[in-house]
């Protein structure tokens, strides 16, 4: 019996996230309201006009999508090295969130790109490496889902997450290098479009809103994962 309970004993996490997740969720809503309020209050950009406001929902999604991969790789590392069940659950829970935020970043980027560049998509270095990041998430989830034994699936996907963490900087570097071969086609000036200081406030508010929402959703998903595992363990025990 001692071992069955040792399989998953994240009591403290459940207790902590029980109040932390709702608090973070509420903070996300408040920050989003404040961010949208200030976002609509700022004047139009002298070049881009009102479309600059897409930035407030786009850039935070990009930041969150990248941050989520860091969380995924970190959880995978802890799960692999210390064989910590909670870390496995955290990695499994964060991947779809990361994919969702990355996807949101790609879609909002496309909406922003249409008025800015006159095209829904351009093969710019940043866009391309962000698309590859999305594909990494897809690969992680596909591998996780294709292996029946959950412990094995978690470890195999964890190895892939770490391989991806080593590769993402290389991918980014290679895409930048590739972009430099096609000088004539680059869209961005170095450093990207310059944003005026008035836009930083709504951008910061929205970024924190996204981060807190991500934190709240992640905790909620880890909780669901823990309960799902317990239910599975109980069902197996019932057959003995």
């Amino acid at each position: 019996m001692g071992i069955i309970t040792a399989l998953a004993n994240p009591q403290r996490f459940l207790a902590f996230s029980g109040w932390a997740a709702p608090v973070l969720g509420a903070a996300a809503v408040a920050l989003a309201l404040a961010g949208l309020w200030t976002g609509f209050a700022v004047p139009d950009d002298y070049q881009q006009g009102a479309t600059i406001r897409i930035m407030f929902i786009h850039l935070p999604a990009v930041f969150t999508g990248m941050m989520a991969y860091g969380c995924l790789a970190g959880s995978a590392f802890f799960g692999l090295v210390f064989r910590h069940n909670l870390a496995d659950a955290a990695a499994r829970a964060v991947a779809p969130l990361g994919a969702a935020f990355t996807f949101l970043g790609l879609v909002t980027g496309s909406f922003w790109g249409r008025p800015m560049w006159g095209a829904w998509w351009v093969w710019d270095a940043r866009l391309t490496s962000f698309l590859v990041l999305f594909l990494f998430y897809v690969g992680y989830m596909a591998l996780q889902a294709a292996i029946d034994d959950e412990a094995k699936a978690a470890r195999a996907a964890g190895i892939l997450a770490l391989v991806g963490a080593v590769n993402l900087p290389i991918v980014h570097y290679s895409v930048v290098w590739w972009n430099s071969l096609h000088q004539g086609e680059t869209i961005f000036a170095k450093g990207g479009p310059k944003a005026s200081v008035v836009y930083l406030w709504p951008l910061a508010l929205m970024s924190f809103s996204y981060f807190t929402a991500f934190g709240a959703l992640w905790m909620a998903r880890v909780r669901a994962e823990i309960w799902r595992r317990r239910a599975g363990a109980l069902a197996v025990q019932g057959t003995r």
């Binding site: 594909l135 990494f136 897809v138 690969g139 591998l143 991806g164 991918v171």
Partner: peptide, 10 residues
């Protein structure tokens, strides 16, 4: 293919 092709980008 889904696992490996993103790694083939560089």
């Amino acid at each position: 293919a889904v696992i490996v092709l993103p790694l083939f980008a560089p």
